[in-house]
Write a protein that binds this DNA or RNA. Structure first.
Lengths: 152, 152
DNA sequence: CTTGACCTTCCCATGGCTGGAAGCCTCATC
DNA sequence: GATGAGGCTTCCAGCCATGGGAAGGTCAAG
């Protein structure tokens, strides 16, 4: 199996397979006499493992750790679980940040007429020295004493 | 005001200010006789605008468009709103992807004992040729006819 | 033998920065 | 006036994960 076939079989592009080899994530592939890379079933298996881990958002370094555990027959499942849950924490943090952005933008967009006039609360908010306390706008009944969004 | 003071005043690092100037996002700063960059109130204002837009996750190219609209006194708020809502769509798409990852990982982690034994459903899932239909595991009572997770 | 599809290595680019090196400028202190 | 700290300047290189493309070798079918 050459690199193109391996790429089609695993969903990892030939470019990325070479890159993973270059960076040491995977061992160097066997070669034919003429220098073509050759992949066997176990290599395909490993590439698919990487593909799945990548789809779950793991970074390359963590994938390296996962591969190590995968190969280690005396691993402890606790180590795998720890990596997975740490990644979940990262993902949730990221989700929270994105949701904050969405909430702010949607509130601003609601306030924006979206017509042919130039006045626009979105631009007004962006040019404000500090983030406006848009919670007040969002839930007019609520008494908001302090902005809870923080500058990083 | 030199670049360090401007950076402290806006939360945009000196490195980034130079970078934004290099890439044409912002106009070239004035210089003192000895070559130091000089920033006036209006420049500070603009840098803060960029900072806020960046905090809301806008990419540099969109920030460029927003800056253009900001400076354009005959803008139409509809254009601003369109940019904002397109960005919201992008963000929500990203959130959905991350949530899918979290759901998969949490389900797998729940199934993993997390002890000193090597057997681990997380690794088992990663080495599976196709993503398992973990929805079945997640809600045992539900009748799942098809996996809804798609390979990209 | 030619053609076209594949493979190889190499470099370049992306976004949105961050870091460092080498050298100049400014300012306070001695 | 000298000195030292800490700014500033430019340039170069890296991060992650990936795509693009050039220049050249290889392979199989016609």
């Amino acid at each position: 199996m050459n690199i193109g076939e391996a790429a089609r079989a695993t969903g990892v592009s030939a470019k990325m397979i070479r890159y993973y080899e270059d960076t040491g994530l995977i061992p160097q592939a066997l070669r034919t006499g003429s220098g073509y890379r050759v992949y066997r079933d176990q290599d395909i298996h490993m590439l698919r493992f990487i593909r799945r881990a990548r789809d779950l958002g793991f970074g390359v370094s963590v994938i390296g750790e996962l591969l190590g555990l995968w190969r280690d027959r005396s691993r402890q499942s606790a180590d795998v679980k720890r990596l997975a849950l740490a990644h979940v924490t990262d993902l949730k943090q990221k989700i929270r940040e994105l949701e904050d952005m969405v909430a702010t933008l949607e509130t601003l967009a609601e306030c924006c007429r979206g017509n042919d006039r130039p006045d626009c609360p979105i631009l007004k908010e962006l040019e404000a020295p500090d983030p406006a306390r848009i919670e007040i706008v969002k839930r007019p009944g609520a008494i908001s004493t302090k902005a809870h969004r923080q500058h990083q």
